[in-house]
Structures are given as structure tokens and as C-alpha cells.
Amino acid sequence: MDLRQLRYFIAVAEEQNFSRAAERLHMTQPPLSRQMQLLEEEIGVPLFVRGARPLKMTEAGQILYEKAPRVLNEADGLAPLTRQLMRTTRRIVIGFVPSTLYGPLPEVIRAFRKATPGVELSVIEMFSLEQTAALKAARIDIGFGRIRMDDDQLAREVLAEEDLIAALPATHSLASDKTPLPLAALAKETVIVYPGQPRPSYADQQISALRDQALEPHAIHEVMELQTALGLVAAEIGVCLVPRSVAGLRARGVVYRELANVNVTSPIIMSRRQQDRSEANDLFCAVAREFFAAM
């Protein structure tokens, strides 16, 4: 059974006459009658009561007539639906760790959306480790994280090495000093790190920044989010190492200090699937490179 036969059948059923149906379909009667015969043979039951005037449908014909218009309407909508899907599937999903939002990433998103108004863009907050699984499962298209991880299925690109700075309670004795702060001063404090899980994470980078200088924190307090860490800093629970761009977040009760130690950084890493080279993804990555290069 094909759509053409269904259209022929509906015309005959509605006109209740083969001749009028043929005129409506702009064809002659013999091929129309032949198509109805083929349709009945395929279904295995008669659809019309032959000899009835006007032409009547059998019970099977009535059942088919109830369903056929809906099938045709759905079929007629397939082409525009496919075009619509093509438009909506021109979408890109971005995964990001929260700290990257304080850098150029919002500008990248704005610039990309302005350049490609026909592409749907979604963003999902997720840890760096989660981004690896999400990329491989195609839940996201591009990820922005801070952890270096090797995977043959993923292409990773370091967009920037962002300096770390210290976040201190505003009441801390070192808060008002304007000179760069040595890491050794932080090692005497409780260091608040985030996220505690999953690991490895940015928390390990904070701890490594101290241990790379042969420093061991007095104590380590793990939390899950940047905002929580800054809240505990303001509450004088401890101090925290944060990316420089976070200084744009004016958290009440928190003072940011530059570090005296050089090369205390955290990378911003853009990741995508190795074999995924869609036009939208390529463009987004190009825009990201441009903005992050200016950090």
C-alpha cells in the first residue's frame, strides 16, 4: 500500500462513484479501478460493495477510511517537519565548570549567538570529570573545564593558563596588605578546596599549588561549590585559592590578594569529540579561541 493508493481510495469513498473520483483526480477511470483492485488484493478484503448505486464501502472500507486521512495528513506534514527538525537540530550544547563563567565564556556565548541566530545553544553546568562522559555520550558538544585528562576519543585544547589568587576573609590580618602574598602564608591556614567530588578536580590543583612549593596546608576543608567556598572564607573558616577571574565576583566579606609565587595557575581547557567537526562546533571553538586569547 502506498500513499497514492490511499489518496485514490479516499476520493472514491467520498465521491461514491469511480467516474467522479477519476475526474477529481485528473485521471481516467480504468487505472483508478485497477489501483483499487490492487489495494483490495494487498489488504485481502473488499473495500467497496460492487454494483451498489451509489457506491458503498464495506465494513473494512469504512475502517480504512477512518484512518486513511490521518495517515495522509501526517505524511503531508513530514516534509515541513523534517525541515523544522533540521533547523532545531542545528544546536550546540556547552558544558562548563562554574569558574569559567567569570572569564570570557559569557562573551563567547553572546558573540556566537549573535553570529548564528539560527543555531540553538544550550549550556549545562558540570564538573570537568563529568564532561568527559557527557562528550563521549553526545550529551554535550563542547566542554570547558580545568582538568587535564587524556582520552583518545576527545580533542583537548588549553585556551589559557589562568593565574590563581588568594581569597581571604576581609577581617584577616593579611587582607589589607597590598603586596603579593606568598603561598607559605596560606599554608598556615585552613585551605578551603572545591569541588570535593568527583575527583580529580580543581580541588587537587589547589592542593598541588601548595605542595609543589613543599608546603603542606595546616588543614583542608572540602566543599562542593565555589560559592560555598567563598561563603566559608567570609565566615572566617579558612582561605581559598581561586582563578583570577573570580575576583570579578564581589563576595561580601571576601578580599582577593595576588600571589607572590609565579606559575601558580589553572588551565582552561576546551574539549570536544575527535571526529565531530560540525560547522557550528568549529565556529564556536574559533570564537572561544579569539576571546580567551585576550585574557
Rank of each mutant, 00 (worst) to 15 (best):
A155H: 12
E130T: 11
H172I: 05
E125K: 14
I165Q: 11
I192Q: 11
P69S: 04
I147V: 15
R146T: 15
A133I: 08
L186Y: 04
K114S: 12
E125G: 14
E189K: 11
T190G: 06
I165F: 11
A170E: 13
P98Q: 07
L121F: 04
P180D: 03
V93Y: 03
R156P: 01
L159Q: 10
E74I: 05
A187C: 10
R87I: 04
G77M: 04
V191C: 04
G143M: 12
G143A: 15
A138L: 14
Q153S: 14
D163H: 13
S176M: 05
T100H: 05
M86R: 12
D76R: 02
T190A: 09
E120P: 00
R91M: 06
K114A: 15
K67C: 00
A68G: 01
M149D: 11
I92Q: 10
L78N: 00
D150I: 13
G103A: 15
K67G: 05
S122K: 14
M86P: 00
G103P: 09
P117S: 04
L85G: 00
V93I: 09
L105F: 06
T100R: 11
P169M: 06
L85Y: 03
E125V: 13
L135N: 10
P169G: 05
D76W: 01
K136G: 07
K136N: 07
G95R: 02
L105K: 09
S128A: 14
A75G: 00
D177W: 00
A134G: 09
A138W: 05
R139L: 13
E162R: 06
I140E: 09
D151C: 01
F112G: 04
L186T: 04
A175G: 05
R91Y: 00
R87T: 02
S173D: 11
S99Q: 13
V93A: 10
L81F: 05
M86S: 08
V93M: 10
A137C: 03
L186W: 07
L174D: 06
L168R: 07
L174H: 12
Q84F: 08
T179C: 00
V193G: 05
R91G: 08
M149R: 12
P98Y: 12
K114Y: 04
L81P: 00
V97M: 07
D141M: 03
F112K: 04
E162M: 14
P117N: 12
V158L: 03
I92K: 00
T190D: 08
T190Q: 13
D152H: 10
A160G: 01
L168S: 09
S99R: 13
D141N: 08
L72P: 02
R91Q: 12
T132V: 15
I165P: 11
T100W: 05
V191P: 07
R83I: 00
L121K: 07
P169K: 08
E161C: 08
I124M: 14
T88E: 12
R70Q: 12
L174G: 03
V123T: 15
T171K: 11
A75H: 01
S173E: 10
E125I: 04
I109S: 07
